[in-house]
């Protein structure tokens, strides 16, 4: 009887351990991959110091690896029209050549992966800080909505847009 109790106890412990392992390494694998992809993209978008032009171009080209071919990026009110994937390297190069420093900090991050685990929506708060070559600084706080899809086992961004928590008022005459 005593031996049976011990066996049941060990069985329950093993089940709990297996459940925990599945939760950590199995179920959460998608979330970890998405978060890692996003962190890598943020690192590429940042500009901590001046880098040689060729390296800057290589970094700009690498940013497209995180997006699907038909991805759309909406950065209104910063950029009025939607950007396609092909336009990302040019936009990246333009911004990086115009600023001395660009830092991005993620303050909040929420990720919802759909039941089929083929799509996910991420909501993030991004604090961006820009220092121009003249030395002036500007900070922004934005919420982004990033839609992810799984293509051939890799999570890619299908769309990214700024969500306006505060909607600017109409201009006079609008």
């Amino acid at each position: 009887m005593q031996w049976d109790k011990q066996r049941i106890g060990v069985g329950v412990a093993v089940l709990i351990a297996l459940g925990a392992a599945w939760w950590i390494w199995g179920a959460d694998r998608d979330a970890r991959q998405i978060n890692r992809q996003f962190d890598q993209l943020v690192e590429l978008l940042e500009k901590r110091a001046d880098i040689p032009p060729l390296r800057m171009m290589a970094r700009a080209r690498r940013t497209t690896e995180f997006f699907t071919d038909d991805a759309e990026i909406r950065l209104s009110p910063l950029v009025e029209r939607a950007l396609s994937v092909d336009e990302i390297p040019a936009a990246h190069h333009l911004v990086h050549s115009r600023v001395a420093q660009l830092t991005l900090r993620i303050s909040d991050r929420h990720l919802d992966i759909d039941a089929e685990r083929q799509g996910a929506v991420m909501r993030v708060t991004v604090r961006s800080g820009v220092r121009t070559h003249q030395g002036s600084r500007e900070n922004r706080l934005d919420e982004f909505r990033v839609q992810w899809v799984k293509e051939d086992g890799t999570w890619l961004i299908q769309s990214a847009e700024i969500v306006s928590a505060i909607r600017a008022p109409r201009a006079v005459g609008d």
């Binding site: 303050s107 909040d108 604090r127 919420e143 928590a165 505060i166």
Partner: peptide
Amino acid sequence: VIELAGQRAMYLK
């Protein structure tokens, strides 16, 4: 305070 994606960074208005 106005929330964005969470409460770590918010607008103050």
